[in-house]
């Protein structure tokens, strides 16, 4: 089971500068926990203390925003691709 994850510039300090990393997991939650084991510091940048996705982080599975799927419980399959993009917002 391999899921490819695209990491934005701002989070590459947690991946040794890597733009693409791979992880495992049957759900997005499991994938994030797996990534955290490999790249310490990534999880707190994505998930809050309440276990939910940060308000200003967008996660996509196969180009669909997971807020329109199952959120952090979205199931994953081998070969899926996940993208992380910080929101672009301001006043």
């Amino acid at each position: 089971m391999a899921i490819e994850v695209r990491v934005p510039t701002v989070l590459r300090t947690h991946t040794g500068g890597e733009k693409r990393i791979t992880g495992d997991g049957a759900t997005l939650q499991e994938l994030i926990d797996d990534l955290e084991r490999r790249n310490s510091g990534l999880k707190p940048a994505i998930v809050g203390g309440d276990g939910q996705l940060h308000r200003f982080i967008n996660l996509y599975v196969n180009d669909e925003d997971v807020r329109f799927l199952g959120g952090i419980a979205t199931p994953l399959e081998d070969g899926d691709s996940v993208s992380i993009l910080p929101a672009v917002a301001g006043g």
Binding site: N58, Y60, D63, E64, D65, R67, S83, L85, A87, V88, A89, G90, G91
Partner: peptide
């Protein structure tokens, strides 16, 4: 150009799907 999902006079937040499309 990316849609402002907030459509506000004082705030913007890029539509998340369009944002990913632009990055791709």
């Amino acid at each position: 150009p990316v849609s402002n999902a907030a459509r506000s006079m004082t705030y913007y937040e890029m539509d998340s799907r369009e944002l990913l499309k632009a990055f791709n």
